[in-house]
Structures are given as C-alpha cells and as structure tokens.
Design a binder for these strands. Structure first.
Lengths: 252, 252
DNA sequence: CGCTCGTTTGATATATTTCAAGAATTGTGG
DNA sequence: CCACAATTCTTGAAATATATCAAACGAGCG
C-alpha cells in the first residue's frame, strides 16, 4: 500500500473533495495516506455486484464505469456514469449491502480502499467526512435529475440532456471539452441510461445531427452550439452543483 | 425554541437516526436540543422552492410532503414522498442552493432547524453526522430505485411498485399497515410520481383492483395478498435498507 | 480477411397519451 | 345542514411516440 505523494492515484479524489470542503494539511495527508490496492479492470468487468457486502470502496482512477440495476423484466437501467476521481461505491459500501451493480464501461483502474479505513478517517477528521458527504449529496442531486430526465422528457430532449451532462462533466474532470469529446458509451448503453431502445437512440442522434446541433464521427461528439443543445436538452447545470466547487490548483 | 424532552417534536427524527447509527446519551441530547421553529403548513404549500438558498432544514413532524421538479415542458416529476420523521431538505440546505421543490401534500407541521445548528452539531458529534449521512444515503438509494421504476417498468408494474413502497414506509413509520392504509396522494400526484398520465394511473388502479390485488374505497387501500402485489410490482424492499435499522424502542 | 460488435434504416405493432365528458366526492359559504 | 362549486375520479375513442422485428451496413480485431 502506497505512501502519500503528489503522484498518488488518490490525488484526483483529493482534488475533488477539496472542491466541496476546505481541507487542512492534515486532512489532505490523511486522504492520500489511505491504504489502497490498485486493481486493473477490463471493460465490462463488475466492480460491485448487487447484493454484495463490499469490504472496499472503489475510487475510479482511470476509465469509465456506471451504476445499474436489472429490472424484473430483464431490462437494464443505468443510473449514473462515472469517471476519473469519482468514488464509485461509497453508497454501497457505507450502506453495507450493495443495492445495485457497478460495472466498468471501458478498461480502467480502481483504487480499492478498505471501508474500515474510510470509517476511521471520517471519525478522526470530520472535514473529510463532510467532503465525502457532499460528494454523495451531489450524486443524489444527479439521481434526482435523472428521474426527471427519464420520467418527463421526450426522447430527443432526454438524449440531448445526457449529451450535455457528459460533456460538462468530462470538461470539469479535465478529460475533454464540452464542445468536443469522446463519448465513452455505445448507443446501447446510452439507451439504458435514458430508458429508450438503442434503435430509437440512434434515430434521435441522427436527428440531432440533421438539425445541426451535434456532429459525430464514431464516438467523437462535436457540439456546434452549446447553448442550443442545452436548450433542446432542457439542460440547466445547476443540479451538478459545480458552483459549489472552490478554486482548484491546476491539474498536473 | 423548545427544551429537550420526550415529547419534543424532534423525537421522531431521533428515533429514525438511532435506527442508522448507535447514538450515546450526549448525541441524543444534542439532537433533541436543536433549536427549531414549528411551522404549520397547509396542503400544497411549499417548504422549499427550487433556487432558494435555504437557511433552515425542515423536519416533517406531521403530514406528507414530496420533492419535485418541473421540466421545461411544464410537466412535473415527483422524486420522492415523505412522512413524519423525514428530514425533507438536508439535501437542499447542505448543498446551499435548492435544486428542487419540496411541497406539502397534506396539511402538516415542519420543524425548521437552522442549517448552522446542524453544521455545528455534526462537527461536534460525528456519530450524529454519520447518522444524517446514512439518512441521505438511503434517500439516494430510493432515488436510484425510482430511476429504474420510471425508466424500465411498464405502467402496471410501476404503480404496483409505488403502492408497495408507500405501504411499507407507512408501516415502518407507524402510520398504517402494509395490508391496509390511507393513500396520501391523489391519482394526479401518483401520476407525477410514476411518470404517467392521471388517466392511465386510474385505469391501472382499476386493473389492479379487477385482478384482486388491491381493494380501494376512496383513498383507502387494502392489499389482499402482499406477496402477489410485490411480485407484480417487481418490488424488492432491499433498496429501503430497513434491515440496517437497529432495534427500536416502541413508539409512544 | 473474415467475424463480431456496433450502427443504421425500414416497416409494423403497441403502450400510453391526448382529448372529452360525465359521475362521484369533497369542500364551502350561506 | 343544505346547495353549489371545485376537485377528483372514471370511462370512451382516437392519436402518437416509442418499441419491436428484421436486415443490411460498417468498423475494429485477431
């Protein structure tokens, strides 16, 4: 298990948490000093299974992942998409029994942190506890927006909304620009995120292209006019609570 | 502002938090000693408006409330339903700016607790912080289930699922039995919770009745065969994390 | 270079919505 | 406590967004 360092794989998490809550030197040291095991994962591999009693909390160091559940009908519903720096199963590990799956979209690496170490950390350093809490509160806000997206927006709007969310989050994570980025998901996965059929997702992507809102070549998305796409997607970034984030040191 | 006491309106919250986390005498005293203002609210009144910067966190003491957002199309999506003992806007008040509305379904009372007092409490008493965190984690789990419900279940299943959730939560809150309870919402509100049309909700309720799964007279719901309804509703209570709750003193 | 997975397109089916109106229940002012 | 108004619930018929089924096309991979 690694010593604290600037190049620690835990660094993206530290940066993210600092966005939510002021952390002093001791807090930072404690975070970077968390014991962890680096685990390389292939595309499609599960990080947590529904029903598990996870002993570790996974921090996504590279690659993309999603949370999902399988309904009784066999249909899959994706509930969130995650990228570098996201703690992908605080929810499951804190609650004891996983109520959903976490699966890799692409290949990547996850730092596995023992739940016990996290519990001790938040007991010892309340500011870190608060930061982690905020992280889960923002996740909650995103879940709420997804309920609206899936429940009360038509297919076109729904997809445009997801394109906006991913664009913005990639930009904030330093993994692309909102105006041009690489979509990490297939259209089938997109479909399970917006609760539509892959066929229909495809048609709507074509339509958004035909209307000049986006351009695509394979998975590469170019957003011609951000404001227009946001309008079509009924996208108001407030729910991401990015404004709550404090000034950050420039990423390495 | 009230002194701590057995009959404090904050007592239902204490009981709920004790379910998530062991609290010592000092923790309990600190919770019951929280400053608060009792606010009577009429049916339909807003507790928090989307966009507000709430200075208080509302604890629902009596009556029912829900969270909702209005999509760009004007359609409303209800994201959760709340009852006695629920803290209805930790989310909004902790995040600073409300990203959704909280509105009373029925008349009721809300204890308004200053956000500052809560922040001080969690700083001073980490166990209480942990309990509140669990509360929001469980809320998050329910949000995730609702994404699935609204996204990947057909109308009949969706409604049966909601009937089960409400039944069970009423029972746990000591406000009814799962086999016979008073539905606090109109069919129009039900519709906005499951993302359907009121007309269609009505038809499906009639259908569930015709199939002998439930009986209704006005808002009174009788569940003839719980297991059958749960099966039709693809309802697996795990997401409510009730098993995490520890033994409780019998309610007064 | 052939296979597999992902995307694209077309034709048809269907669950749910929309529109409309009547019946029942609840609330309210006199 | 009644009568009227306003919700809420119920039912029917027609419209439509999205799903389903099916097949071809394209691109990455061993």
């Amino acid at each position: 298990m690694s010593p604290p360092s600037e190049s620690s794989p835990l660094h993206p998490m530290l940066r993210k948490l600092q966005g939510w809550q002021a952390l002093d030197a001791a807090d930072c040291e404690a975070i970077l000093g968390l014991p962890h095991l680096m685990r390389p994962l292939k595309a499609g591999q599960y990080v947590v299974w529904d029903g598990d009693r996870p002993q570790f909390s996974g921090l996504l160091v590279s690659g993309f992942a999603y949370r999902h559940k399988i309904a009784g009908s066999g249909a899959r519903q994706i509930m969130s998409v995650h990228m570098r720096g996201d703690v992908v199963d605080l929810h499951n590990s804190m609650l004891g029994v996983a109520d959903h799956n976490v699966q890799m979209i692409t290949a990547g690496e996850v730092a596995m942190i023992p739940v016990e170490a996290i519990r001790e950390l938040i007991a010892a350093r309340p500011a870190v506890g608060a930061a982690l809490w905020f992280e889960t509160l923002v996740d909650g806000s995103i879940f709420r927006e997804w309920i609206v997206n899936v429940g009360r927006r038509d297919s076109r709007t729904r997809i445009a909304h997801l394109l906006c969310e991913i664009a913005l989050r990639l930009e904030v994570a330093g993994l692309g620009e909102r105006s041009a980025y690489e979509m990490p998901m297939t259209q089938e996965q997109l479909a399970d995120a917006v609760a539509l059929t892959p066929v229909h997702v495809n048609r709507m992507l074509m339509a958004l292209g035909a209307d000049g809102l986006i351009r695509r070549s394979q998975r590469h998305i170019t957003v011609a006019d951000w404001d227009a796409l946001a309008k079509v997607g009924d996208f108001d970034a407030r729910y991401l609570h990015l404004d709550r984030r404090r000034a950050q040191p420039v990423p390495a």
